[in-house]
Design a protein around this nucleic acid. Structure first.
Length: 259
DNA sequence: TTGCATGTTCCGGA
DNA sequence: GTCCGGAACATGCA
């Protein structure tokens, strides 16, 4: 679930329910998601603090809590759940922030993401590591610079967080399918006009996906056939091919996406 | 039972 | 230094 669009959805969900509210306590149900803190430490540091406006960079959510920051990453499975009643905890709920009026639960099935604490902006960037400009807001000129000068596969570049932050396996496939470009195309082969087209498609896919908080699972979207046993291209009905690019399973249409 | 999964990092080799 | 493939992390599902 969590690529740029999903994470942006989680960010606004968090803002809607937790912004400005005081943290009463933090319960850790599975310390396996704590990355640079402990159950005791996170409780001690956050108790009494107020959540500020959460930000998103790439697939990270950074939430100010008074003078410090909470960083959330969701790996391949994970999310947030706001609970106001006495709803029973799910087995994948790993941590709960009890705040004014309810509980914000961080859940993650596979625990590939996690929760970090940072004291300042410097520590925040040490934790996230180097990130390129966010895919949602990168400018066209900068996109050209990022795509040029390398023979690496387009899909690999799009997913490289150090280059452009936020795109994952599904968004990269969706963008390349909509742009009708083969995922293995060496970036340097793209003429400037094609880079423009790729940029425009990326913007369009992201705008529509962010609006829904996920890639639209609708006719006309590659996402709608992802996982189907005998997936067919939503455009031309050709059998979708599954190949490996950059080590990841890649859905593509051999007819629409020529090299 | 085996393979695969929306992410990231580390390691060895070319 | 660059790039690639594979393994690892932990868990559930087909």
């Amino acid at each position: 679930m969590p690529e740029l669009a999903d994470v942006e959805g989680l960010r606004s969900y968090l803002a809607r329910h937790a912004k400005g509210k005081r943290i009463e306590n933090v319960s850790v149900h599975d310390a396996g998601v704590l990355r640079n803190t402990s159950a005791r430490d996170i409780g001690r540091k956050l108790k009494g603090m107020r959540f500020g406006l959460p930000e998103r960079t790439g697939k990270w959510i950074i939430v100010p809590a008074d003078s410090s920051y909470v960083l959330l990453h969701f790996g391949m499975t994970g999310g947030l759940h706001w609970v106001t009643g006495d709803e029973k905890r799910d087995r994948s709920d790993r941590l709960t922030f009890r705040i004014d009026g309810g509980e914000l639960r961080y859940h993650s099935q596979r625990k590939l993401g996690g929760v970090w604490l940072a004291r300042d902006r410097n520590e925040v960037s040490e934790i996230t590591g180097p990130l390129g400009p966010d895919a949602k807001s990168v400018r066209k000129k900068q996109f050209h610079e990022l795509i040029a000068h390398t023979d690496r596969a387009l899909k690999v570049l799009l997913m490289d967080q150090q280059r452009i932050a936020g795109l994952g396996n599904e968004l990269a496939d969706e963008i390349l399918w909509q742009a009708r470009m083969h995922p293995s195309t060496p970036a340097s082969e793209l003429e400037p006009r094609r880079v423009d087209a790729l940029y425009a498609t990326m913007r369009d896919v992201l705008t529509k996906s962010v609006k829904r908080g996920q890639i639209p699972d609708e006719p006309g979207w590659l996402k709608s056939v992802r996982g189907d046993r005998e997936a067919r291209c939503p455009r031309c009905r050709t059998a979708i091919r599954k190949i490996k690019v950059g080590g990841r399973t890649t859905y593509m249409c051999p007819k629409c996406q020529k090299r």
